[in-house]
Every structure is written in C-alpha cells, then in structure tokens.
Design a protein around this nucleic acid. Structure first.
Length: 489
RNA sequence: CGGGGUGUAGCGCAGCUCGGUUAGCGCACCUGCUUUGGGAGCAGGGGGUCCCAAGUUCGAAUCUUGGUACCCCGACCA
C-alpha cells in the first residue's frame, strides 16, 4: 500500500485515479479502455447490485439474460437508436483464427471464416430484447412485461476513465412493455424514483431528478429522465437514466398485442439503467485526501478491529468476542489479527479503504473497560465503554450514513446557483462550478452554442422545478422553465 | 481522430545528452534480530528478454529508422 495520494486541490483527476488504484478498487488492464475491477471494488459493486436487485424485485421485475451479440440487421431496426450508437460499436466479423503460415507460433484471423452477417457487441440491448418480446407478447394479458438484466455492455469510447467511462462496463438494464403510454410513463418515473432512493439512501449522495432536453435524450427514446449528482469538483455526473421509449421499438420490431376489444395495438416501452459508473460517483462523493470514505451501507467492512500496540493472545480473545458481538448485530466487521503489520500502518490503510468505523483494542483502555472508536467521516476518536459497544457502533454507523448525506446535500445546495443573465451564467460555470439554474429558449442551437462557449451542457429540467417564465440567458427569447446547466463527466 | 507524455525488477524512478566492466536507487518482497498506542530500525538476501524489430558499431538501456502499448489533454459519449 502506497503512502500518499495526490491532494484534491492539486489535481482532482489524479486524486481520483490514485484513490482507485491505491484503495485497490480497480486497475488498468492489458486491454485499452478496459479495467479490472479488483476484489475490494467488486465487493462494493456487489453491495450496490444486491440492493438495487432487491428494489427491482420489490417493484415487480424479474431478471433474465439476453445475448451479448446482436445481429446487425436487428441492431439497425430502430434507426435512431442504431444511429446514436453506431460510432461506438465493436463488431464481430469473423468466427475463427488459424495458425499463421508466415509466422510460426502466431495466429491470424482466418479469412475463410468471415461471418455472413456481422454481430454487434451490444452497447445496449433494446434491439435483441424487443426482437424477443415480439414472440412473448400477444395479448393484453401478457402485459405489463417487467424484465431486468444484469450484463456487460461495450461502447468503444475515444477517451476512458476508470469507472466513469470504460469501453466495457457492467450495468443493469430494465426493459418493460405496457399496454398504455400512461402506464409506461408511470413505470419510467417509478424506476427513476427507485434510482434516486438508492443513490440518496444507500450512496448518501443527493441527486436532482429531471428530464433531459431533446439534445441529451437517449437515442430512440421519446423522453429521458435522469438523476444528476454533483461531484466535489463541481462537475455533474449523470448517475442513472430512465427512458420512456414510446412505441418506437414496438414499431421497429412489430411488437403488438390484442386489447380487450380484440384490436391490434403496438405496446409502449421503457428502459432504464445504472452502471458501474455509480462506483465513480460513490468514490468522488465523500472521499478525501487520506483516501476513500464509504457510506456504511455500502462498505464491505463497516467496522475494523485493530489490536494495539501489537497482537497478543489476550487482545485476540477480546477481539474475537467483539467480532462475534458486532456480527450478532448484523454489522460487517473485519478483525485484523495480522501480526506483521503495525497499528499505524493499519490505521492508514483502513482510512485509505474508507472503512467507516475503526475500533482500537488496547490493553491500557481495556483496563479501564474502554475501547477507542474512530470514525472515518469526521476523523473523531472517542473512548467508549466496552459494555454495550455493539449498540453504540450500530447507532454510530447510522449517524455516519446520515452525516455523509447531510454533508453532500449541503454541498449540492450551495452549488445550485440561480442565474438570470449571461454574465452570471458564465461566472458560475467558469469560476464557482456546480449547477447554473437558468432560463434558455429550449432550442438545440442555443444549447449547442452554450456548450461551445462554456463547455456546460443542459443536465436536466428538474421535475420539481417551478413553471416560472423568463427569458433565455443567451438569446433573450422567452422560456417557460429553468434548466440546470453544468460541466459534466 | 488530433496534441502531448511514458515504456528500465511487483510499484515509483535514475541512468540516455556525450555508447565502454557485473544496469542502479527508493518502496514492496524473503530471512534473522531488535522494536511496538499513527505508515518501525538494523543486517543479510532474491528478483531485469532495459516495450518490440531492424540498422550503425569492436561494443547499444544509451545513437538511427520503423513499429507497438498504455496514460494524460481535447472533440464524441453513460
């Protein structure tokens, strides 16, 4: 374990990379743009995944799995969707290698093994799924169809960043079919709420729920709903999206059902997803210059026990009892009995790993019936009675969870700035950072122009925003509602 | 796809300008002893196709040419 990471104030993006590498969350791989998720990082992802999966099932969804490959003919069926992803698709053209006659021991693509039809490695699965749904859906009795899949997808990005944008990433994608537009829109919003409940409740990261402007909409969607989170450097991160797909895919794949009146109708669709990008959000949300800071609900180890100043049998026994006691309370606890590392090293290491609570077990304190409890979020240390430690820790974990949220919430609130003219807008985007809440005329041209001039993009039209009329900060044309702008990841 | 950077031990680097014993340093690793309430000390030890290929040369980590990989910054995107 290395000793230091770059300070946020010095180089935020280097800090982010250092943190991931040194906390052992992920690593670069031999494949350009692809990363290895290491056990500690994957443990966090598993906690996120398990919770989301539970929430999907509680809202009536079932898991299924669809193929990695999508035949080109299917992929291109929904034109807008296909166009939107065309530039970043990996394509399988051959199905066999052979030994290279010119280079002994080397392999080459067998030119005789060219596929009749290329296979697209899924950048998203609407095409293959809707092609399947055609066979699954015939009657209104088959609806709604509520399916989710956990999968990997590939988007051949020009520029990648650990967790935030990699060529291959893990995600879940929900794909639902409904009899009416109203029902589909309700589903879209319901899942957006599941996402915001998860991100706020488990990741302790406040989000703004909103609707994307047409320019930022998912290719093939009629409407895209989003949750936008704010990172410590003032940049926004789109953390989850939920799409109302209208009848676009139903029409492209001829998915119809017979309604109660015995007439054919196209079904209405939604899709929604969150990815390992959430890991990036989690890392950036709370961490500091000493390392990761994890919310207790998503910490692989919620409590670590460290004997001080060194490991001996008596301390080991106390530690074992303590471990059992905490586990009894449902707390994820790690008892570190490693004799080869000294306490100071362990303290620093578990701070790097973001473990919310550390308990030092030392002879001196034990003689007084006390334990030293340190919390990662505020770095406070307190002597706490050995008796009743488990309930103390349990309450402390809850306190840390809510403190992290409160802290992030106040950061977010302080970084949503209402602006009323171009100078204010520019000043916020260039100097203060965060969201600029501004009127604009709603046209693509203006959106493009704003991006060109300031690098800021329209993040969303907040769902709870007031319908307040005003004038566009750039063109002076009328506007019906304010939109959140920010520089984004 | 443009611009920049870097490839030398697991990691971080020096050496290269000006070619010359056995390629070095820190961290990590192994062994031993001593230590031990915030990243231990000492001693000993192991570990290298110097990114690849071709060329120049008596001799290449070092010079030349070509290739390749990854990272960073931009445009594109979750």
């Amino acid at each position: 374990m290395a000793k230091e990471i770059t300070a946020r104030s010095e180089d935020y993006s280097k800090w982010y990379n250092d943190l991931i590498l040194k906390a052992g969350l992920a690593d670069y791989s031999a494949v350009k743009g692809c990363m290895v998720i290491k056990p500690y990082g994957f443990a966090i992802w598993e906690l996120m995944r398990d919770q989301l999966d539970k929430m999907f099932k509680e809202t009536g969804h079932l898991n299924a799995y669809f193929p990695l490959f999508v035949p080109k003919r299917l992929f291109e069926a929904e034109e807008k969707n296909a166009e939107g992803f065309a530039k970043e698709c990996a394509v399988v053209t051959h199905y066999r290698l052979k030994t290279d006659p010119d280079k002994p021991g080397k392999l080459m693509v067998d030119p005789e093994a060219k596929l009749e039809e290329e296979l697209i490695v899924r950048p998203t699965s609407e095409a293959i799924i809707w092609n399947t749904y055609r066979d699954w859906i015939h009657s209104y009795r088959d609806l709604p169809l509520l399916i989710n899949q956990w999968a990997n997808v590939v988007r051949w990005e020009m520029r990648t960043r650990l967790f935030l944008r990699t060529a291959e990433f893990l995600w879940q994608e929900g794909h639902t079919a409904h009899a009416t537009a109203t029902e589909a829109i309700e589903e879209t919003v319901k899942m957006l709420n599941v996402y915001s409940d998860f991100v706020e409740g488990w990741m302790a990261l406040p989000v703004v729920k909103g609707v994307k402007t047409p320019g930022e909409r998912f290719a093939g969607a009629d409407d895209t709903y989003t949750i936008e989170a704010l990172m410590q450097d003032g940049k926004a991160l789109q953390s989850g999206t939920s799409h109302f797909l209208g009848q676009n895919f139903a029409k492209a794949f001829e998915v119809k059902f017979l309604n109660k009146e015995n007439t054919q109708e196209y079904v209405w669709a939604t899709s929604w997803g969150v990815s390992t990008r959430l890991m990036g959000a989690l890392i950036m949300a709370h961490s500091d210059d000493e390392g990761l800071v994890l919310p207790p609900k998503l910490a692989p180890h919620q409590v670590v026990l460290v004997p001080v100043p060194f490991v001996n049998d008596e301390l080991l026994n106390v530690m074992k009892d303590l471990e059992a006691e905490l586990k009894q309370e449902g707390i994820r606890v790690k008892a570190d009995s490693d004799e080869t590392k000294r306490p100071g090293f362990k303290f620093a290491e578990y701070e790097m790993l973001g473990v919310p609570v550390r308990i030092a077990i030392g002879m001196r304190d034990l003689e007084k019936g006390m334990l030293e409890v340190a919390r990662r979020d505020t770095k406070e240390k307190n002597l706490v009675p050995r008796e009743g430690i488990a309930s103390y820790v349990k309450a402390l974990l809850e306190e840390i969870q809510s403190n992290l949220f409160t802290r992030a919430k106040s950061f977010q609130q302080n970084n949503i700035t209402i602006v009323n003219n171009w100078d204010e807008f520019k000043d916020v985007i260039e100097n203060k950072g965060g969201f600029a809440y501004a009127h604009y005329d709603g046209t693509q041209e203006t959106e493009d122009k704003i991006k060109e001039l300031t690098q800021a993009t329209a993040r969303c039209i907040p769902l709870d925003g007031e319908k307040e009329s005003g004038v566009c900060i750039l063109t002076g044309k009328p506007s019906a509602q304010r939109v959140l702008f920010a520089k984004a990841y």
